[in-house]
Design a protein around this nucleic acid. Structure first.
Length: 330
DNA sequence: AAATCGGGGTG
DNA sequence: CACCCAGATTT
């Protein structure tokens, strides 16, 4: 297979110049802002990120303020975004940049890549957007574009896709725009379902025009869902009007790591009476949450909370509290 | 290579 | 319901 010609590169960049969406992280080349946007956008859709990106800098205007903040404040700012490990990585990376590099964001690819929570694709985005380095981005969008453009079979190893992505960006003298254009193409025209090949600037050279359904789209996935397991958790709701709600901090590892929840019995065996429960679905687990209102005093490591707005709680717990009429705590 | 980690959007 | 989303890290 061959790389893209310079003519095809120009067509893609011309198309991008015409149709590019206006997004706030496209209005800056500041590495702190780009870094925050890229981490937020990991496995998270643009429309979900937009309001969170805009409000983030009210709380943490620069990397120094992020490094100085308590981790709990960072988790609270991340509340609802999911994959909470990302928030802890952000905090750790900010500390590292402040402690080891005087607060100056690293400018070399390997140093960027070495930051916690920054993998090859995110590092490529920061390196190209902020410092014009010819490093490719290979996210879900770009992978789909390259698979469709280059081959007619569905599976293609990541190693080959990285090679293809690097060859492509080496053809371009504008790595930042090139990466942006590839992502934009995947996010808009070359979407997973019903791609619009008729409008695509790469249609002339694409191997999949007219048969995209066979390539990386509607092909059946082989039992990826078998790993979605059902788990049953009893959520112990200690609520006393004069004290509030009893919350515990979850361990850093595992589901909802570092967030605050009522005490949870994780290996709960529901009785035959089939008590109603709220089902909260994650990527790999279906959480069956059984609320249990308890009058006795709690024991263990936790605290009474009258105003939970200062604490980072997972979305599933908010839903459960609402069902039990405890939303007044919010 | 496979599993883990959220929550929301879409057909 | 299935699949996807500007993936990274751990096992």
């Amino acid at each position: 297979m061959t790389g893209l010609s310079s003519e095809q590169c120009r067509q893609l960049l011309d198309w991008y110049a015409l149709v590019a969406r206006v997004l706030p992280w496209r209005e800056t080349a500041d590495p702190y802002h780009i870094w925050i946007s890229e981490v937020m956008l990991q496995q998270t859709q643009v429309n979900t990120v937009l309001p969170r990106y805009l409000s983030w800098f009210n709380m943490f205007p620069d990397i120094q303020s992020l490094a100085d903040a308590p981790l709990d404040d960072v988790l609270k700012a991340w509340e609802g975004l999911g994959y909470y490990r990302r928030a802890r990585f952000l905090h750790a990376a900010a500390r590292k940049v402040v402690d080891e590099n005087n607060g100056d964001f690293p400018r070399q690819f390997d140093e960027i890549l070495s930051l916690p929570g920054v993998g090859r694709s995110t590092a490529g985005a920061i390196a190209s957007f902020c410092f014009s380095l010819s490093k490719p981005v290979l996210d879900g969008n770009v992978k789909r574009v390259l698979k469709r453009w280059s081959v007619t079979v569905n599976e293609m190893a990541d190693a080959k896709l990285w090679l293809l992505a690097q060859q492509a960006i080496d053809q371009s003298d504008q790595p930042a725009l090139w990466n942006q254009a590839m992502m934009e193409l995947g996010a808009t025209l070359c979407s997973a379902k019903s791609p619009k090949c008729g409008m695509c600037p790469l249609a002339d050279s694409c191997a999949s025009v007219g048969k995209v359904n066979e390539v990386c789209g509607n092909a059946p996935k082989t039992d990826k869902r078998s790993s979605v397991r059902d788990v049953h958790w009893q959520v112990k709701l200690y609520y006393q009007p004069e004290c509030g709600l009893w919350l515990e901090k979850r361990p850093d590892d595992g589901i909802w790591g570092g967030l605050w929840t009522p005490p949870i019995l994780e290996k709960y065996v529901p009785e035959q009476g089939a008590k109603p429960c709220y089902i909260h679905t994650l990527t790999h687990r279906r959480l069956h949450l059984y609320g249990e209102q308890i009058q006795q005093d709690p024991i263990g490591c936790g605290q009474w909370v009258k105003d939970i707005s200062k604490f980072a709680l997972p979305t599933g717990i908010y839903r459960l509290l609402q069902i039990y009429g405890l939303q007044m705590l919010e």
